[in-house]
Amino acid sequence: LVRYRTISKIPQITLNFVDLKGDPFLASPTSDREIIAPKIKERTHNVTEKVTQVLSLGADVLPEYKLQAPRIHRWTILHYSPFKAVWDWLILLLVIYTAVFTPYSAAFLLKETEEGPPATECGYACQPLAVVDLIVDIMFIVDILINFRTTYVNANEEVVSHPGRIAVHYFKGWFLIDMVAAIPFDLLIFGSGSEELIGLLKTARLLRLVRVARKLDRYSEYGAAVLFLLMCTFALIAHWLACIWYAIGNMEQPHMDSRIGWLHNLGDQIGKPYNSSGLGGPSIKDKYVTALYFTFSSLTSVGFGNVSPNTNSEKIFSICVMLIGSLMYASIFGNVSAIIQRLYSGTARYHTQMLRVREFIRFHQIPNPLRQRLEEYFQHAWSYTNGIDMNAVLKGFPECLQADICLHLNRSLLQHCKPFRGATKGCLRALAMKFKTTHAPPGDTLVHAGDLLTALYFISRGSIEILRGDVVVAILGKNDIFGEPLNLYARPGKSNGDVRALTYCDLHKIHR
Rank of each mutant, 00 (worst) to 15 (best):
A440N: 09
Y293A: 01
N306S: 01
S81Q: 03
E376M: 06
A247C: 01
V180Y: 01
L370V: 01
L401N: 01
L176K: 04
R342P: 04
S220T: 04
S277P: 01
L209G: 05
S308H: 03
S313K: 02
T203R: 01
L92I: 05
P184N: 04
F333W: 06
R371V: 03
Q365F: 01
L188I: 09
F185V: 05
N250F: 04
W245N: 01
A181H: 03
V393N: 03
G199Y: 03
E221C: 08
P70C: 05
L92N: 01
G249S: 01
V142C: 08
V131K: 01
T98R: 03
F363P: 01
K272F: 01
L197T: 05
R205L: 01
S383P: 08
D186Y: 06
S308Y: 04
G422H: 11
V131P: 01
I183T: 06
G422Q: 13
L414R: 03
T438R: 08
V212H: 07
V168D: 06
L229M: 09
K172E: 04
S298R: 03
A119R: 15
I138E: 01
L343Y: 12
M231R: 01
E375G: 03
N156T: 13
T438K: 06
S161W: 06
F296K: 01
Y344C: 10
G193P: 12
D268N: 14
M139T: 05
Y274A: 01
N386I: 04
I405M: 01
G443M: 04
M256F: 09
H448M: 04
G249I: 01
F378C: 13
S105M: 07
L355I: 07
V100N: 01
V212C: 06
G261A: 01
R356M: 14
L241N: 01
Y274I: 03
G271F: 01
H380T: 09
I72G: 15
Q365T: 04
G193T: 13
D404P: 02
V168P: 01
I244L: 04
P163Q: 04
D404T: 01
E314V: 01
V393E: 03
D444R: 07
D178P: 01
E252V: 01
H380K: 10
R211I: 01
T445M: 09
N154H: 14
V100F: 01
A106F: 04
M231S: 01
A167L: 05
A99N: 01
L145V: 10
I388H: 10
L216E: 01
G193F: 12
T311L: 01
T438N: 09
F171K: 01
C232S: 13
D88W: 01
L279M: 08
H169M: 06
A242S: 01
G261V: 01
C232I: 04
W174A: 04
I198Y: 10
C122Q: 01
T437W: 11
W75V: 04
S194T: 14
V160D: 08
G193V: 03
A291G: 01
G191D: 04
V212M: 06
G271T: 01
L394I: 08
E114D: 12
S383K: 04
I260F: 12
W75H: 04
K172L: 05
I361E: 01
A242V: 01
S337L: 03
A403F: 01
A403C: 03
V321G: 01
A247M: 10
T290H: 05
V159S: 01
I237T: 09
G305P: 06
L266C: 03
L176W: 11
N250S: 09
K172N: 03
A238L: 01
L230W: 09
R259M: 03
E376D: 07
V336L: 04
A432V: 08
V226I: 12
L299D: 01
A440H: 14
L292C: 01
D143C: 01
L129D: 03
N386H: 04
R259D: 15
F397M: 06
K272V: 01
S383D: 15
R356D: 13
G267T: 04
Q353W: 04
M322P: 01
I198Q: 03
T445E: 07
W75F: 10
D143V: 01
D137V: 01
R358G: 03
C406G: 07
L187T: 10
M390H: 04
Y80N: 14
I135V: 05
D257F: 04
C122M: 01
P184L: 01
V180L: 13
L201C: 04
Y170D: 01
V168Y: 06
G443W: 01
N312Q: 01
T102K: 05
Q372T: 13
D268P: 01
P309S: 01
E314G: 01
W262Y: 01
K285C: 08
C126Q: 03
D133I: 01
L134P: 01
G426S: 05
A392Q: 13
Q341L: 09
F171C: 14
L327K: 01
A381G: 10
K202I: 01
L92V: 05
R71Q: 12
H162S: 13
Y246D: 01
A338P: 06
Q402R: 05
L201V: 05
D444Q: 07
W382E: 01
T347I: 04
H416N: 09
S220Q: 13
D88N: 01
N391T: 06
L263F: 01
L428V: 07
F140M: 01
L327C: 03
P441G: 09
N306I: 01
V159E: 04
F435Q: 01
S331C: 08
L374K: 01
T311I: 01
G116V: 08
E375H: 14
G191W: 04
I189T: 13
F296V: 13
G271E: 03
I198P: 10
F83Q: 05
P103H: 01
L129G: 12
G443H: 06
L292K: 01
Y97M: 01
A403I: 01
V336Y: 04
W240D: 01
V357H: 01
T352S: 10
A182S: 04
I260C: 03
H416A: 08
H408N: 03
Y97W: 05
S345P: 05
Q353K: 04
W382G: 02
V447L: 12
F294G: 01
R349T: 11
E64A: 07
G199I: 06
G123H: 05
M322H: 01
N391K: 05
K287N: 01
L292T: 01
F190E: 12
R214H: 08
A181R: 01
R356E: 15
F363Y: 08
L374W: 03
M322W: 01
T290G: 01
L374M: 07
N312H: 01
G426P: 08
G396L: 03
I388P: 04
Q365M: 04
E64G: 10
G271K: 04
S345Q: 13
L343I: 05
T102R: 01
P419I: 15
G325E: 01
D133A: 01
A225S: 06
G164V: 13
I260D: 03
P82D: 02
A430F: 09
P128A: 11
H448L: 06
L323Y: 03
L207C: 13
L413T: 09
P117I: 14
F363R: 13
A235Y: 01
R74V: 05
G426K: 03
F360I: 02
P419S: 12
T424M: 03
L176C: 13
E376W: 09
Q269V: 01
S298D: 01
I146D: 01
C417H: 15
G193H: 11
Q341T: 08
I339H: 03
G443R: 03
S412Q: 12
W240M: 03
W87D: 04
P273G: 01
L431A: 02
S331L: 06
L201H: 01
P184Q: 03
L197K: 07
M390D: 05
L446D: 01
V142W: 01
L67Y: 04
Q353E: 10
M256P: 11
T385K: 03
C427D: 03
I405P: 01
L93M: 10
T352K: 12
N310Y: 01
T120W: 01
